[in-house]
Design a protein around this nucleic acid. Structure first.
Lengths: 198, 198, 198, 198
DNA sequence: CATGAATGAGCATTCATTCAT
DNA sequence: TATGAATGAATGCTCATTCAT
């Protein structure tokens, strides 16, 4: 029992170290040595759990993706569609230190997915899950008044908006404020007639 | 004169080579060797024009950024705000092969800007120019009916949407269609009451 | 009893795996991992039987050497010295697939003996046994007509010839034919007046 | 002029370092680091001249092979066939310190040729040149009394004998004496009726 | 006896950069 | 301006070996 938990925590420690380095120094500054040092394990241990660097990065992104999805699934959703969507966006936008770190990780891996099939697969599956959930939310919010295509398009729109805002926030130095981040989402939801019922 | 033009074309050939490699293999696959080979010049020549790799990348991104801005400035704008904005978005979205290459370059450098001050500076200046122009467009479209803050927010929103759409298009394999790309922009402009006057 | 036989066969399986890898990929391509995989046992099992790689190689060569000696001892010898010597040479030359594999193993280990005392010891003991037997054969063939030194020299000569032929056969691609291999031995035996009595 | 000689001596220094390490520690103890240290150049310089380890080893063996051939070509040959052949054998057998080093190098590379096509090519070309020269020598010595096939076979025999003797000398600790090395060659030449005319 | 996680030294190779010409 | 030899730090990875179970 202690072995299993040791093994799991070692593996997780490695993933955590990767994510930490990606957030602070970028994807291409991740080296096996630095990961080992940060995770406080030997180089051999890193490579025991992730035989290649590629697998190590993919493993870490899979872990990050899993955490994001779990957090969204655990979100308490109410009958108010607008509030639900705002909540979801609030989980994805870099509005506090923790979320900011996560956004930096997400942006780095998402961009990396453009040239790495391994990362692209994880990225796409994350986007698909998000898209499915948001499409359902729009379907629900709009009742029968909207075609499935329109609901899907609205979902694409909101995810793209959030990702673009995260990209801007993460890559510029306070060019865009936290307030603008949330206001931009509200502005688009308003445009889509997803209004606060109150 | 021929020497000067040779020199200028050499420098441009190097920049082009960098952008080509970034588009096809990613930012971290750019090596001085590969750039020299692709540009068909010697390593020494590359480093004569860009003494360090950092400067080479920044130079190439500055060149790419310059081209985007020039293209937007050369865009023939009419009295129709919606049409103007659609045109601008059309220049930024990966709707054809050339624009797709450009989007890949943009996404790679934008993500790189998260951890490189040199790139961040160029990235931020590009975003600012875009934002200024779009803010003016919204001010113009909405007349006196909107506060400057609202116009600025709308500009942020549209740029973020376009960047997010480009990110999705570039990092997934036909998960989002060209049609959805343009429809998403239209949907948001509709929401912002930027309608076709006709 | 079954356990003992299992243990013995495991140990032999490991030796066999080493010899197979040496024959096909060379001495320096032998890794504990590869040996374990080829022998279909765990790395731990390999290292249980041979604590160090050095011991593993020495053990495998000792096994190969044992097999060669046993085969020579089991050779039915008659009154015809020439025939006997031809038979011995035929056991050492790479005249068929099995013997070719063995010759590749022998050449690899013999060369390795130049820089490994452990292998040199096994190599020298194999050569000495061969030399003793051949010296006796020459003494027998020549009767009292030759000094012990001459018999010993003839034995050295024949072994060197056979080893040189094996080296050439193994390291070149059909530069020397099977026929030339046996003819060269016959030519030297003729020169030493070891003639077929018939 | 000084550059060219510098470049050439650097490259030769690397080859010499490889040969020295092969002679003293064996082919599989050659590392780029050790070669750089021994040659007193940087690692980068080694790899500038020989981009891969494989090429470095092949380059060093080609150099060693070139030296052997040049020495044999420069050998003053007289009308006495036996003396000529003895001279050739004397150049190949490890009869002094320098030749012993060379023999260790030769044995190591020859054995390596069994599993490396690059080395095999060099090895085979060296053997072919040697074989051609010796075949001619036998043809000359025997006049019209021998078929070409018999001359070629005798050449194969002598080369194999010399290589086998070198192998034995190099891989055992004074099991075979220098005197026996030369006597074995003389014994075979006697058997082939290549006699001292005096 | 057997296993496989853990270790870290060592490997070949790539790389950006310097510099003499 | 242009070249490419020289440099050595850094990288991903392989490996033999140790050890707890």
């Amino acid at each position: 029992m202690s072995e299993k938990s040791t093994a799991r925590s070692r593996r997780e420690a490695v993933s955590d170290a990767v994510l930490e380095i990606v957030a602070t120094h970028g994807l291409d500054q991740v080296t096996v040595r630095e990961v080992a040092t940060t995770a406080d394990v030997s180089i051999g241990t890193v490579q025991h759990h992730f035989p290649t660097k590629q697998q190590m990065l993919a493993g870490a992104y899979a872990e990050a993706s899993r955490r994001i999805r779990r957090r969204l699934q655990d979100l308490p959703l109410g009958p108010d569609s607008r509030r639900n969507m705002i909540h979801v966006a609030g989980q994805l936008l870099p509005l506090d230190a923790e979320r900011s770190t996560e956004a930096r990780v997400y942006v780095a891996f998402a961009a990396g997915a453009a040239t790495s099939p391994d990362l692209a697969e994880i990225q796409q599956s994350l986007l698909e899950e998000l898209h499915t959930a948001l499409t359902a939310a729009f379907t629900d919010a709009w009742g029968g008044a909207a075609t499935p295509a329109r609901c899907a398009l609205a979902a694409h729109t909101v995810i793209a908006l959030v990702d673009g805002l995260a990209l801007h926030s993460v890559t510029t130095n306070s060019w865009i404020t936290d307030r603008q981040l949330t206001d931009a989402v509200a502005m688009v939801l308003d445009g889509l007639h997803i209004a606060d019922p109150s």
